[in-house]
Computed example of a mutant assay.
Amino acid sequence: MAGRRFRFGAVVRGAESAREWAEKARRLEDSGFDVLLVPDHLVGPRLAPVAALMAAACATTRLRVGTLVFANDFRHPAVLAKETATLDLLSDGRLEVGLGTGWMAADYAGAGLAFEPPGTRVDRLAEAIAVLKGLWGDEPFTHEGAHYRITALDQHPKPLQRPHPKLLLGGGGRRMLRLAAREADVVNLGMRVRPDGTGPDGTDGGLKAFLAKLETVREAAGPRYNDIELGTSIMQLGIRKPNESWSAAHTTTQDETPQVLLGTHHDITDKLRYWRDEHDISYYVLHHERDLPTFTPIAESLAST
Protein backbone atom coordinates (compact mmCIF):
# COMPACT_ATOMS: atom_id res chain seq x y z
CA MET A 1 0.00 0.00 0.00
CA ALA A 2 3.02 2.27 -0.05
CA GLY A 3 2.33 5.55 -1.77
CA ARG A 4 -1.48 5.33 -1.65
CA ARG A 5 -2.88 8.83 -1.79
CA PHE A 6 -5.39 10.22 0.67
CA ARG A 7 -9.07 10.14 -0.20
CA PHE A 8 -11.78 11.98 1.70
CA GLY A 9 -15.51 11.33 1.84
CA ALA A 10 -18.32 13.05 3.68
CA VAL A 11 -21.67 11.72 4.86
CA VAL A 12 -24.45 14.08 3.75
CA ARG A 13 -27.85 13.16 5.13
CA GLY A 14 -30.46 15.50 3.76
CA ALA A 15 -31.76 18.70 2.20
CA GLU A 16 -35.03 20.61 1.99
CA SER A 17 -35.04 20.91 -1.80
CA ALA A 18 -33.41 19.63 -4.98
CA ARG A 19 -31.55 22.93 -5.29
CA GLU A 20 -30.11 22.69 -1.77
CA TRP A 21 -29.01 19.09 -2.36
CA ALA A 22 -27.29 19.99 -5.63
CA GLU A 23 -25.53 22.93 -3.95
CA LYS A 24 -24.25 20.65 -1.18
CA ALA A 25 -22.86 18.22 -3.74
CA ARG A 26 -21.14 20.98 -5.71
CA ARG A 27 -19.62 22.51 -2.56
CA LEU A 28 -18.21 19.13 -1.61
CA GLU A 29 -16.74 18.66 -5.09
CA ASP A 30 -15.05 22.06 -4.85
CA SER A 31 -13.58 21.39 -1.38
CA GLY A 32 -11.00 18.65 -1.85
CA PHE A 33 -13.41 15.79 -1.13
CA ASP A 34 -13.60 12.71 -3.34
CA VAL A 35 -16.89 11.07 -2.36
CA LEU A 36 -20.37 12.13 -1.22
CA LEU A 37 -21.87 9.38 0.93
CA VAL A 38 -25.48 8.76 1.92
CA PRO A 39 -26.64 6.53 4.79
CA ASP A 40 -29.53 4.08 4.50
CA HIS A 41 -32.13 4.16 7.27
CA LEU A 42 -35.92 4.00 7.31
CA VAL A 43 -36.29 6.34 10.29
CA GLY A 44 -34.98 9.87 10.71
CA PRO A 45 -34.55 12.90 8.41
CA ARG A 46 -32.44 11.25 5.71
CA LEU A 47 -32.89 11.13 1.96
CA ALA A 48 -33.33 7.74 0.31
CA PRO A 49 -29.96 6.73 -1.13
CA VAL A 50 -30.59 5.74 -4.76
CA ALA A 51 -32.43 8.90 -5.79
CA ALA A 52 -30.13 11.12 -3.71
CA LEU A 53 -26.97 9.67 -5.27
CA MET A 54 -28.33 10.10 -8.78
CA ALA A 55 -29.21 13.73 -8.08
CA ALA A 56 -25.74 14.39 -6.60
CA ALA A 57 -24.06 12.79 -9.61
CA CYS A 58 -26.13 14.90 -12.01
CA ALA A 59 -25.13 18.08 -10.14
CA THR A 60 -21.38 17.35 -10.34
CA THR A 61 -18.74 16.17 -12.81
CA ARG A 62 -15.84 14.75 -10.74
CA LEU A 63 -17.35 13.85 -7.37
CA ARG A 64 -17.87 10.17 -6.71
CA VAL A 65 -21.05 9.08 -4.95
CA GLY A 66 -21.72 6.17 -2.64
CA THR A 67 -23.43 4.75 0.40
CA LEU A 68 -22.29 4.31 3.98
CA VAL A 69 -23.99 1.91 3.79
CA PHE A 70 -26.86 0.16 1.99
CA ALA A 71 -28.65 -2.04 4.54
CA ASN A 72 -28.74 -5.47 2.93
CA ASP A 73 -31.95 -6.50 4.67
CA PHE A 74 -33.93 -3.69 3.01
CA ARG A 75 -33.49 -4.95 -0.58
CA HIS A 76 -33.12 -8.22 -2.40
CA PRO A 77 -29.59 -8.26 -3.89
CA ALA A 78 -31.01 -8.76 -7.41
CA VAL A 79 -32.85 -5.46 -7.00
CA LEU A 80 -29.76 -3.77 -5.58
CA ALA A 81 -27.60 -5.13 -8.42
CA LYS A 82 -29.96 -3.60 -10.99
CA GLU A 83 -30.20 -0.24 -9.19
CA THR A 84 -26.45 0.08 -8.65
CA ALA A 85 -25.56 -0.95 -12.20
CA THR A 86 -27.93 1.72 -13.49
CA LEU A 87 -26.50 4.31 -11.08
CA ASP A 88 -22.97 3.49 -12.16
CA LEU A 89 -23.85 3.81 -15.83
CA LEU A 90 -25.73 7.10 -15.46
CA SER A 91 -23.06 8.63 -13.20
CA ASP A 92 -20.33 7.86 -15.77
CA GLY A 93 -18.73 5.29 -13.50
CA ARG A 94 -18.61 7.32 -10.29
CA LEU A 95 -20.48 4.97 -7.95
CA GLU A 96 -19.05 3.29 -4.84
CA VAL A 97 -21.27 0.67 -3.21
CA GLY A 98 -21.08 0.56 0.57
CA LEU A 99 -22.94 -2.44 1.97
CA GLY A 100 -23.74 -3.68 5.46
CA THR A 101 -26.07 -6.08 7.22
CA GLY A 102 -28.47 -3.46 8.53
CA TRP A 103 -28.11 -2.81 12.24
CA MET A 104 -30.46 -0.17 13.66
CA ALA A 105 -33.25 -1.92 15.56
CA ALA A 106 -35.58 1.08 15.16
CA ASP A 107 -35.55 0.66 11.37
CA TYR A 108 -36.67 -2.95 11.68
CA ALA A 109 -39.27 -2.28 14.35
CA GLY A 110 -40.82 0.65 12.49
CA ALA A 111 -41.12 -1.29 9.25
CA GLY A 112 -42.19 -4.58 10.81
CA LEU A 113 -39.04 -6.37 9.64
CA ALA A 114 -37.61 -9.32 11.58
CA PHE A 115 -34.45 -8.23 13.41
CA GLU A 116 -32.51 -11.47 13.34
CA PRO A 117 -29.29 -12.26 15.25
CA PRO A 118 -26.03 -10.75 13.97
CA GLY A 119 -24.72 -14.11 12.74
CA THR A 120 -27.77 -14.63 10.53
CA ARG A 121 -27.49 -11.13 9.09
CA VAL A 122 -23.78 -11.58 8.33
CA ASP A 123 -24.50 -14.93 6.63
CA ARG A 124 -27.16 -13.26 4.51
CA LEU A 125 -24.81 -10.40 3.65
CA ALA A 126 -22.12 -12.83 2.50
CA GLU A 127 -24.63 -14.46 0.15
CA ALA A 128 -25.84 -11.08 -1.08
CA ILE A 129 -22.26 -10.11 -2.02
CA ALA A 130 -21.96 -13.28 -4.09
CA VAL A 131 -25.24 -12.45 -5.84
CA LEU A 132 -24.22 -8.84 -6.52
CA LYS A 133 -20.87 -9.81 -8.00
CA GLY A 134 -22.49 -12.56 -10.04
CA LEU A 135 -25.18 -10.28 -11.49
CA TRP A 136 -22.66 -7.53 -12.20
CA GLY A 137 -20.72 -10.08 -14.26
CA ASP A 138 -20.96 -10.77 -17.98
CA GLU A 139 -22.78 -14.12 -17.95
CA PRO A 140 -26.18 -15.35 -16.74
CA PHE A 141 -25.90 -16.06 -13.02
CA THR A 142 -27.33 -18.86 -10.90
CA HIS A 143 -27.13 -19.13 -7.12
CA GLU A 144 -28.88 -21.39 -4.63
CA GLY A 145 -28.20 -20.63 -1.00
CA ALA A 146 -29.85 -20.49 2.39
CA HIS A 147 -31.18 -16.96 1.82
CA TYR A 148 -31.31 -16.28 -1.94
CA ARG A 149 -32.09 -18.25 -5.09
CA ILE A 150 -31.16 -16.88 -8.51
CA THR A 151 -31.79 -18.81 -11.73
CA ALA A 152 -29.88 -17.97 -14.93
CA LEU A 153 -30.48 -14.25 -14.43
CA ASP A 154 -28.65 -11.94 -16.85
CA GLN A 155 -29.34 -8.34 -15.90
CA HIS A 156 -28.70 -5.27 -18.01
CA PRO A 157 -27.29 -2.69 -17.95
CA LYS A 158 -24.00 -3.86 -16.54
CA PRO A 159 -22.01 -1.42 -14.39
CA LEU A 160 -19.75 0.88 -16.37
CA GLN A 161 -16.88 0.14 -13.97
CA ARG A 162 -15.51 -3.34 -14.57
CA PRO A 163 -15.62 -5.83 -13.08
CA HIS A 164 -17.88 -3.77 -10.80
CA PRO A 165 -18.00 -0.53 -8.77
CA LYS A 166 -15.83 -0.32 -5.68
CA LEU A 167 -17.40 -2.38 -2.92
CA LEU A 168 -17.03 -1.02 0.61
CA LEU A 169 -17.72 -3.15 3.66
CA GLY A 170 -17.23 -1.94 7.18
CA GLY A 171 -17.66 -2.84 10.79
CA GLY A 172 -15.94 -3.65 14.03
CA GLY A 173 -16.82 -7.26 14.69
CA ARG A 174 -14.21 -9.90 13.85
CA ARG A 175 -16.52 -11.88 11.57
CA MET A 176 -17.60 -8.81 9.60
CA LEU A 177 -14.00 -7.63 9.22
CA ARG A 178 -12.90 -11.03 7.93
CA LEU A 179 -15.69 -10.99 5.36
CA ALA A 180 -14.67 -7.47 4.32
CA ALA A 181 -11.03 -8.50 4.00
CA ARG A 182 -11.98 -11.32 1.63
CA GLU A 183 -14.56 -9.50 -0.50
CA ALA A 184 -14.27 -5.71 -0.35
CA ASP A 185 -12.26 -3.17 -2.29
CA VAL A 186 -12.55 -0.73 0.64
CA VAL A 187 -12.67 -1.74 4.32
CA ASN A 188 -14.06 0.87 6.72
CA LEU A 189 -12.92 0.19 10.29
CA GLY A 190 -15.46 1.11 12.94
CA MET A 191 -16.76 0.15 16.35
CA ARG A 192 -18.75 -3.01 16.89
CA VAL A 193 -22.52 -2.49 17.19
CA ARG A 194 -24.45 -3.75 20.22
CA PRO A 195 -26.39 -6.95 19.43
CA ASP A 196 -29.69 -5.24 20.30
CA GLY A 197 -29.16 -2.66 17.52
CA THR A 198 -29.27 0.39 19.77
CA GLY A 199 -25.84 1.82 18.98
CA PRO A 200 -22.07 1.28 19.16
CA ASP A 201 -20.70 -1.12 21.75
CA GLY A 202 -18.88 1.07 24.25
CA THR A 203 -16.60 -1.80 25.28
CA ASP A 204 -15.07 -1.90 21.80
CA GLY A 205 -13.15 1.38 21.97
CA GLY A 206 -9.52 2.29 22.37
CA LEU A 207 -6.24 2.01 20.50
CA LYS A 208 -5.65 -1.67 21.31
CA ALA A 209 -9.03 -2.70 19.88
CA PHE A 210 -8.50 -0.56 16.77
CA LEU A 211 -5.07 -2.08 16.06
CA ALA A 212 -6.51 -5.56 16.57
CA LYS A 213 -9.08 -4.85 13.85
CA LEU A 214 -6.29 -3.84 11.48
CA GLU A 215 -4.49 -7.10 12.21
CA THR A 216 -7.68 -9.09 11.62
CA VAL A 217 -8.01 -7.52 8.16
CA ARG A 218 -4.35 -8.19 7.33
CA GLU A 219 -4.59 -11.84 8.34
CA ALA A 220 -7.89 -12.50 6.58
CA ALA A 221 -6.93 -10.65 3.38
CA GLY A 222 -3.74 -12.61 2.83
CA PRO A 223 -2.16 -11.87 -0.57
CA ARG A 224 -4.91 -9.42 -1.56
CA TYR A 225 -4.14 -7.08 1.35
CA ASN A 226 -2.19 -4.62 -0.81
CA ASP A 227 -5.19 -4.26 -3.13
CA ILE A 228 -7.51 -3.15 -0.32
CA GLU A 229 -8.09 0.50 0.55
CA LEU A 230 -8.37 0.91 4.32
CA GLY A 231 -10.54 3.65 5.76
CA THR A 232 -12.34 4.84 8.84
CA SER A 233 -14.92 7.43 9.86
CA ILE A 234 -13.98 10.62 11.68
CA MET A 235 -16.45 10.69 14.55
CA GLN A 236 -15.05 13.66 16.47
CA LEU A 237 -13.17 16.71 15.22
CA GLY A 238 -11.82 19.65 17.19
CA ILE A 239 -9.28 22.19 15.95
CA ARG A 240 -7.61 24.57 18.38
CA LYS A 241 -5.15 27.38 17.86
CA PRO A 242 -1.51 26.89 18.88
CA ASN A 243 -1.03 27.33 22.68
CA GLU A 244 -4.79 27.18 23.26
CA SER A 245 -5.81 24.95 26.19
CA TRP A 246 -7.92 21.87 25.55
CA SER A 247 -10.81 20.77 27.72
CA ALA A 248 -10.87 17.21 29.04
CA ALA A 249 -14.52 17.14 28.00
CA HIS A 250 -13.37 16.70 24.41
CA THR A 251 -11.59 13.43 25.10
CA THR A 252 -12.99 9.92 24.45
CA THR A 253 -11.74 6.34 24.48
CA GLN A 254 -11.03 6.73 20.75
CA ASP A 255 -8.63 9.68 21.13
CA GLU A 256 -5.57 7.66 20.13
CA THR A 257 -7.29 6.29 17.00
CA PRO A 258 -7.82 8.15 13.72
CA GLN A 259 -11.56 8.32 14.48
CA VAL A 260 -10.92 11.30 16.77
CA LEU A 261 -8.93 14.26 15.49
CA LEU A 262 -8.09 16.92 18.07
CA GLY A 263 -5.45 19.64 18.11
CA THR A 264 -4.06 22.22 15.74
CA HIS A 265 -4.30 21.97 11.96
CA HIS A 266 -0.67 20.77 12.00
CA ASP A 267 -1.38 18.16 14.70
CA ILE A 268 -4.26 16.69 12.72
CA THR A 269 -2.48 16.53 9.38
CA ASP A 270 0.48 14.87 11.10
CA LYS A 271 -1.82 12.30 12.72
CA LEU A 272 -3.50 11.47 9.41
CA ARG A 273 -0.12 11.07 7.71
CA TYR A 274 1.03 8.81 10.54
CA TRP A 275 -1.98 6.50 10.23
CA ARG A 276 -1.58 6.32 6.48
CA ASP A 277 2.18 5.79 6.44
CA GLU A 278 2.40 3.42 9.42
CA HIS A 279 -0.96 1.63 9.30
CA ASP A 280 -2.15 2.02 5.67
CA ILE A 281 -5.35 3.96 6.46
CA SER A 282 -5.73 6.40 3.58
CA TYR A 283 -9.49 6.91 3.22
CA TYR A 284 -11.21 9.15 5.79
CA VAL A 285 -14.94 9.78 5.99
CA LEU A 286 -16.21 12.86 7.79
CA HIS A 287 -19.26 11.57 9.61
CA HIS A 288 -20.86 14.83 10.73
CA GLU A 289 -21.86 17.43 8.16
CA ARG A 290 -21.46 20.20 10.76
CA ASP A 291 -17.68 19.61 10.67
CA LEU A 292 -17.30 20.28 6.93
CA PRO A 293 -16.20 23.95 7.21
CA THR A 294 -13.60 23.05 9.83
CA PHE A 295 -12.24 19.98 8.07
CA THR A 296 -12.22 21.32 4.50
CA PRO A 297 -8.80 23.08 4.80
CA ILE A 298 -7.28 19.82 6.03
CA ALA A 299 -8.81 17.83 3.17
CA GLU A 300 -7.57 20.41 0.67
CA SER A 301 -4.03 20.37 2.09
CA LEU A 302 -3.77 16.56 1.94
CA ALA A 303 -5.87 15.77 -1.12
CA SER A 304 -2.97 15.61 -3.57
CA THR A 305 -0.51 13.79 -1.25
Rank of each mutant, 00 (worst) to 15 (best):
A55V: 15
A55H: 14
A56M: 13
A57F: 13
A57R: 11
A57P: 00
C58W: 14
A59T: 05
A59L: 07
A59W: 05
T61R: 14
T61I: 04
T61W: 04
T61S: 14
R62S: 14
R62Q: 15
R62D: 14
R62P: 02
L63F: 08
L63C: 08
R64W: 07
R64P: 02
V65F: 01
G66C: 02
T67S: 11
T67Y: 03
L68R: 02
L68I: 08
V69T: 08
V69Q: 01
F70N: 06
F70T: 03
A71E: 03
N72P: 00
N72C: 13
N72A: 12
D73F: 02
D73K: 07
F74M: 14
R75F: 03
H76E: 10
P77W: 14
A78D: 12
V79F: 06
L80C: 01
K82T: 04
K82E: 05
K82M: 04
K82N: 05
E83H: 06
T84D: 07
T84N: 08
A85M: 06
A85I: 12
A85K: 12
T86D: 03
T86C: 14
L87M: 05
L87Q: 13
D88A: 13
D88C: 08
D88M: 12
D88E: 07
L89S: 10
L89G: 04
L89C: 13
L90K: 10
L90H: 04
S91H: 06
S91R: 14
S91Y: 08
D92G: 13
D92A: 15
D92V: 10
D92W: 12
G93T: 09
G93F: 08
G93L: 11
